[in-house]
Nucleic acid binder design. Structure first.
Lengths: 211, 211
DNA sequence: GAGTGATTTAAACGACTGTTTGAAATCTGT
DNA sequence: ACAGATTTCAAACAGTCGTTTAAATCACTC
């Protein structure tokens, strides 16, 4: 029963290398060498490089989105039960918290977070299309929930502001260590829990700004 | 004097193709075919594919940064002359306005804007290093100016909030037409001037949020 | 323990990559 | 119009890419 080991060794190595160098710049030979398996194993177990990338994405994206969805629906039904609308911050939190938690936890998912950060940025291609196919349902639900939390906002404005929020988030997911932006003497380390709150402070204020 | 024509034909084609498909996925053969020049012309005029990418970036980044810098310094000296600090919004505007204007104007720079949107997202590689080398001086100045506009903010918080802002901006620069996020019936078209204000509303509120 | 199906292996496939070459063509200055 | 430098061109270079093949090895049932 070595097959599962091989498949997961390939997935782990591919996740790391795709995240570090991007899809096109990562060769199957680099992946199989890093995973210490034979070159042909990728095509045997996954069929093609494209299918491997899809498997890498889905392995983590599916449970992540299930978690986000259940938390979002909990917030929505809690508000409905109370006869109120959900707050912007708690809606955002259902989306942000599971993601940033993944960023910190065991080193394995860390690579994945950088990877989907890049997925959101890659030119219209394979990664983007796989990613969007699995993200757009939850995006629509997020948009609808924010519409309820922010009844004063036009849908057009909300659309753009949500785009800004997604842009911030994917940027943070990409770069852990890119400090070239500030003077050298600023300490920038932040625990995951703090980062979540700093992000929610910023994004809630942006979404709730006067129009 | 056909050399300049050839060089610029190559730069134009490369800018478009790099923006559309990324650096690694774009071959010199695709570029030279699109530019209707000989394959060897790239290596003759630029030396290598890497050097071509640098030339593509610098052609537009240099004048853009000069414009941003002069506007920023105008804002700073105007505030100093008035004995006040600059507002967050006007500091941000010096950085945002020249960029988004480039996004709209003649179709030629449109490709460039998508390109540097991707540059900010590509895994640590060539594009990123070229870009950062030419961006970090102005980034430091922007950070310092925002410190002056937001004296109540800790440097650490400002660092992260500025990252969020840059993430939003690069995300918008990348995707002109990615509407998969919202329900289908939302009209999202926006003139450049409106987009600038929508972005400044959001980002100013985020930067100025209570800590 | 032979036989069957799943997995691994080394080797090769054709296609494509960035780069180089040296001759041909074109332009520049006199 | 000529000489000399610049630019273009087709062809080939060595290397890497994703994928395929067929034999070798493994795990397991009868």
């Amino acid at each position: 029963m070595c097959q599962i080991d091989t498949k997961e060794k390939i997935l782990d190595a591919a996740e790391l290398l795709f995240a570090a160098h991007g899809y096109h710049a990562t060769s199957l030979r680099a992946i199989t060498a890093s995973a210490e398996v034979n070159l042909a194993a990728v095509n045997y177990h996954f069929g093609s490089k494209d299918a491997l990338m899809e498997a890498v994405l889905l392995r983590r994206l599916e449970p992540l989105n299930k978690l986000r969805l259940s938390q979002l629906e909990a917030v929505l039904s809690r508000a409905e039960a109370a006869g109120t609308v959900p707050t912007t911050r708690e809606v955002l939190r259902t989306f942000v918290e599971p993601t940033f938690r993944l960023r910190q936890k065991g080193s394995d998912a860390e690579g994945f977070i950088r990877l989907i950060g890049h997925a959101l940025a890659e030119p219209q291609g394979l990664v983007m299309s796989i990613f969007m196919r699995h993200m757009s349902p939850i995006m629509v639900k997020l948009f609808t929930a924010l519409e309820r939390a922010l009844p004063g906002l036009s849908r057009k404005t909300l659309f753009w502001r949500l785009h800004f929020a997604i842009g911030s988030m994917s940027h943070i997911m990409r770069c852990h260590d890119r400090h070239s932006i500030t003077p050298a003497d600023v300490s920038v380390e932040l625990e995951t829990e703090e980062l979540i709150e700093v992000f929610l402070d910023y994004t809630t204020a942006g979404l709730e700004a006067a129009q």
